[in-house]
């Protein structure tokens, strides 16, 4: 986000920021020269821009600073994705323990091998962000290439922060595509306890 004096004048910029933080997407705050940053973004990583970082009073940002920002964003992005996977797997592990299930291991494509309470094994694939039909396709292909030994694979996602219209679309996909199941991470424990092939 480019933190300028007028950034928080818009309801939409504030909402975008909250939604990103809620979904675990890290924010890089670029503070405009001489601007005092808003406390609403104190949970973000910060780079302060100095007047010399700009080619003129209104920009653009000089190339050397822009390159530094790009590298910083990429570092933040990759670490953020790793943290979001870990968050989903951590919540899954906690939920499974309620029902005497457990995570036995994690393989390629983030495939999580799960032992259910009745000792059956299934494979779950955590997805960060909004799942798509392409994700379902890839999971189905991956399961086939591994012999689909563990029943119907499961796509796990975090619905917090996903727009309700998208959520309805995901429910529709789940109702109509039977080669992969979709589960919200917040309901994974109950859903897996009742899992049937």
């Amino acid at each position: 986000m480019l933190d300028t004096p007028s950034y928080f004048d818009s309801k939409w910029t504030r909402d975008e920021l909250v939604r990103a933080l809620t979904m675990g997407i890290l924010v890089l705050r670029l503070v405009w020269p001489k601007h005092q940053p808003n406390r609403s973004t104190d949970i973000a990583e910060t780079i302060y821009l100095e007047p010399d970082d700009l080619a003129g009073p209104d920009g653009p940002i000089r190339d050397c600073k822009a390159n530094q920002i790009v590298l910083f964003v990429e570092s933040l992005r990759t670490r953020s994705i790793a943290a979001r996977y870990l968050s989903i797997i951590g919540r899954l592990r906690a939920d499974l323990l309620k029902f005497d299930g457990e995570i036995e291991g994690i393989g390629t494509h983030h495939a999580v091998s799960i032992r259910l309470p009745d000792d059956r094994r299934i494979c779950a694939y955590p997805i960060t962000g909004v799942p798509t039909a392409k994700n379902l396709n890839e999971i189905a292909d991956n399961a086939i290439s591994h012999g689909q030994q563990n029943g119907v694979p499961v796509l796990l996602y975090d619905h917090i922060g996903i727009h309700s219209g998208w959520s309805k679309h995901l429910e529709w996909l789940d109702d109509n595509i039977k080669t992969v199941r979709m589960m919200k991470i917040t309901e994974a424990g109950w859903s897996l306890a009742a899992y049937e092939d």
Partner: peptide, 16 residues
């Protein structure tokens, strides 16, 4: 009540 995190907690509470 940190202003950056308050709306995030409300959002998570509503969703769970």
């Amino acid at each position: 009540g940190h202003p950056a995190t308050t709306p995030m907690i409300w959002f998570i509470a509503e969703n769970i």
